[in-house]
Design a binder for these strands. Structure first.
Lengths: 234, 234
DNA sequence: TCAAAAGTGTTACAAATACACCCATGT
DNA sequence: ACATGGGTGTATTTGTAACACTTTTGA
């Protein structure tokens, strides 16, 4: 027996539900944020996170995946709910709550043409302009989240290309934690986690000597994500 | 200039937004959950978390506070967003997303008459019956959250009465972590956090000798909540 | 040959763990 | 006097933190 809306809920209030996406990338030692210029009213032309209204027939997470794919061309990206921004007066149009998500993506793997067509731009995380509504707050909250989370889950690793060097991984952690780490201690700790596979190739783009490339042992990496670890370092 | 709904949003979908509240308490060595019997259709008579639709003119968090007060009489309770349950088909009535919250309350401080009038009941956390919709999932997720969170924030402390003994605090942590802790190490660690004030009174309800009562140093306790700590123990 | 980043080990210190007995009191 | 939970100290282990020099190689 299908229960119809009319029966029970009709006297309650309906509202818009949106989802906004804080998209982090990592490049050249800097943590970066992908934002774009709004092409729709209201507030057309201002910088904004990507987002969308959630449709009746889609999950909230599907809406986030949809908009991410529309703009970056990416699918199967690490994405997680951040929190709900649900104050009554947050949207100047009509009552609308937003469920913010954050995503970690590999810069270089997204569709550049798509991004440009949508007026998107990567900003250094320390250099983000004013965004629409409370989107700057969302970015701050997402940053705080990944800074905490990086201490017990190998979350930062989602941001690197498939093959990466240990100094590269270290620069990522330095960007996330915003402090210099000791190279010996870092290497020791990372290798002790036992999820890296050393390759025979070297990356010579940052030094004459070159640094060995590594990749993740996917199954061990997954176990580590489930069990967590403790990554306090220098 | 007030922007009206009609201008921009009218072609988008609206839906119901609800909030459900996972309410934890602690008593006699057990972590407990407050649930109640639904008095409204659909699914009248089944066990359920407390919850409510969010109204157009109230914040999501206000809706959660409203329903918590209606049923327990409590205000100014520790409550935090858990996550959104937003699949398209979760509600048999009409599209409705729910933003789950979790609250930690002091058993004994809530209004018993109110609770009974609303058909509420405290269940041991290991003994929770089947709940409506995905509410069992919400409880599991909330449990996982507090178990993790108890390791770096003094979150568990919200569950104790104003005056409490160290063995009581230990039993709380044992209930949250689901393992026995070493009394000496526990005491050492807790006292080293430097947020407890020893009182002259003893609680003799659990032993002939009695255990000294303590209370929290509120300002130090707040600082600890902000800065976090590390509570890995035995 | 030199500049610039990669790679490597050891010691000192701090924190967590394991562990067993005496204390206070009501009955 | 005894049963029950409260309270205490130390040695061991584990993990983090601090620290400086050699290697490689393209220009």
């Amino acid at each position: 027996m299908k229960i119809t809306e009319k029966d029970y809920y009709i006297q309650e209030d309906k509202m818009y539900v949106a989802t906004d996406c804080v998209i982090f990338g990592f490049d050249e030692g800097n943590l970066k944020l992908l934002i774009f210029k709004r092409r729709v009213k209201p507030l057309m032309g201002t910088w904004s996170l990507i987002g969308s209204f959630v449709r009746l027939q889609e999950d909230v997470s599907e809406a986030a995946e949809r908009v991410l794919k529309e703009i970056t061309g990416l699918e199967n990206v690490f994405m997680e709910e951040l929190k709900t921004y649900g104050t009554a007066n947050r949207d100047p149009g009509y009552r609308c709550i937003s469920i913010a998500q954050y995503a970690l993506i590999r810069i270089g793997e997204y569709d550049k043409e798509l991004v440009e067509r949508h007026g998107a731009h990567w900003y250094d995380i320390d250099d983000v302009p004013n965004l629409v509504l409370e989107h700057n707050q969302m970015v701050e909250d997402a940053l705080a989240r990944i800074r905490r989370k990086a201490r017990y889950k190998p979350i930062g690793f989602e941001l690197l290309p498939q093959k990466f060097t240990i100094p590269q991984l270290q620069r990522l952690y330095e960007a996330v934690y915003q402090k210099k780490l000791d190279a010996r201690n870092f290497r020791k700790k990372v290798l002790s986690l036992n999820v890296l596979i050393k390759l025979d190739e070297k990356d010579k783009s940052t030094s004459r000597r070159g640094a060995f490339l590594y990749k993740f042992d996917k199954s061990k990496y997954k176990k580590l994500q489930e069990s967590g670890f403790n990554f306090e370092i220098s």
